[in-house]
Amino acid sequence: MTKVSIEVNVNGRTRHATVPPRMLLSDFIRHELSLPGTHVGCEHGVCGSCNVVVDGRAVRSCLMFAVQAEGAEITTVEGLAQGDDLHPIQQAFWEEHGLQCGFCTPGMLATAQELLAQNPDPSDDEIREAISGNLCRCTGYEFIISAIRSAAAKLRERESETTLQPV
């Protein structure tokens, strides 16, 4: 099978690779780039565990071919923490007990990133709606909703700290 050269930016780093055209983006991220934080639960686009952020949108990496990501900017769960500082969304999931086994969590975090970028102060129903495409079998979702609500507050606070106020 003829391989195709691609260039993608993953977690701020440009990656060049030569991949078979049929290789899924999820497999590319996990096995070619050695970023195993993106998890595969169903491989048919239902569970959302493989969600990553591609050009600002949370997408199923099991429903994309790696070659379709040519030129894209991708953020995986490995790209969230800065050094040993968890991202505010990760921190909120920790504080609110928003995970148990953690398998669906990277996908939830990707979905939460997209939601909170578009809607910094979502209602609980808006959070429910946003994560209704991500299956979790452990938590019953309640503490995930708490975590995203708390993350939204943390991000708003961070935003107000870094925005220069008029004097």
């Binding site: 195993p36 769960v77 995970l99």
Partner: peptide, 9 residues
């Protein structure tokens, strides 16, 4: 949680 949340479980 920290290792799981950071994708290193």
């Amino acid at each position: 949680d920290p290792r799981i949340l950071s994708g290193k479980g």
